[in-house]
Amino acid sequence: MWKRALSAGCLCALRPQLTLARRHASSTSSVSSAVDSILLRSLKEHYLEVSKMSPPPKVNPPSPFSVVKGALDNDGPVLRRSYGDEEITISVMRLASIIPGGGDDEDDDGINQLFLHVDISKPGRKERLHFLCGLYPDAMGIHSISMRPTLKNSSSQFVRVPSTYQGPAFQDLEEKMRDALHGFMEERGLNESLFLFLQAWLYVKDHRNLMRWFKTVGTFINEHKAV
């Protein structure tokens, strides 16, 4: 009899706490749901806004360069061409992607300063010639030249850091040699004529990445909300 009364008393004492816990959980769930809905609405609005942006006029790459298949979906080479027995590939990125805040001048539209990774390889060679260049609407400058291992998976060469000596800084070379290297690049069509295409290509890639970002984040939030 005493044990039953004690047990009943304990249950009565715990019941209000359980009720409060349920109310708190319900309140937290309601707030979370409201926050998710606000975020999903914002993501959808921005997605629709970005989807209405007009793409730049279509620009073809200068002949004889061709666009690498699937380039928009990875960080590998964008353009390719053959020159004699040489295979030349070009990867591109914005200055702002390397230096935070770089290229933020409103007159630059954010993508008037580009960096190129130019790779020149030959059959049977274990190393390739690598140029890091700055590309502008009216000029292209060489920042560095190095020899790097030839990679079978070209999509990874964009981010690989060399571990061997990379040679002297370009500005430390004699003027005659610098001029000869610029002539070497010019002979292969590596000059400012690439700028308009690569600028338009980066715009399309950035637009596609932004659309994909809004969509994937929204999908994740919506799935989380449904759990």
Rank of each mutant, 00 (worst) to 15 (best):
residue 40 L to N: 04
residue 42 S to L: 10
residue 44 K to F: 13
residue 45 E to F: 08
residue 45 E to Q: 14
residue 45 E to C: 05
residue 45 E to M: 09
residue 46 H to F: 09
residue 46 H to P: 03
residue 47 Y to R: 13
residue 47 Y to H: 15
residue 48 L to R: 10
residue 48 L to D: 15
residue 48 L to M: 10
residue 51 S to Y: 06
residue 52 K to A: 14
residue 52 K to Q: 13
residue 53 M to G: 00
residue 54 S to R: 14
residue 54 S to F: 01
residue 56 P to I: 09
residue 57 P to R: 09
residue 57 P to G: 02
residue 58 K to F: 15
residue 58 K to N: 08
residue 59 V to P: 03
residue 59 V to H: 01
residue 59 V to N: 03
residue 61 P to W: 10
residue 61 P to N: 11
residue 62 P to F: 05
residue 62 P to L: 05
residue 63 S to V: 14
residue 63 S to H: 15
residue 65 F to T: 11
residue 65 F to R: 05
residue 65 F to V: 12
residue 66 S to R: 13
residue 66 S to P: 02
residue 67 V to E: 07
residue 67 V to I: 15
residue 67 V to L: 13
residue 67 V to N: 00
residue 68 V to H: 03
residue 68 V to E: 06
residue 69 K to N: 15
residue 69 K to E: 13
residue 70 G to Q: 04
residue 71 A to W: 15
residue 71 A to V: 05
residue 71 A to E: 11
residue 71 A to L: 00
residue 72 L to C: 00
residue 73 D to K: 07
residue 73 D to M: 05
residue 74 N to K: 02
residue 74 N to S: 12
residue 74 N to P: 00
residue 74 N to T: 11
residue 74 N to C: 12
residue 76 G to C: 09
residue 77 P to Q: 03
residue 79 L to V: 10
residue 79 L to A: 05
residue 79 L to P: 04
residue 79 L to K: 14
residue 80 R to W: 12
residue 80 R to S: 12
residue 80 R to Y: 11
residue 80 R to C: 11
residue 82 S to K: 14
residue 82 S to L: 04
residue 83 Y to A: 07
residue 83 Y to W: 12
residue 83 Y to P: 00
residue 85 D to G: 12
residue 86 E to V: 02
residue 86 E to L: 13
residue 87 E to P: 00
residue 87 E to I: 10
residue 88 I to M: 06
residue 88 I to Y: 07
residue 89 T to D: 06
residue 92 V to E: 03
residue 92 V to R: 00
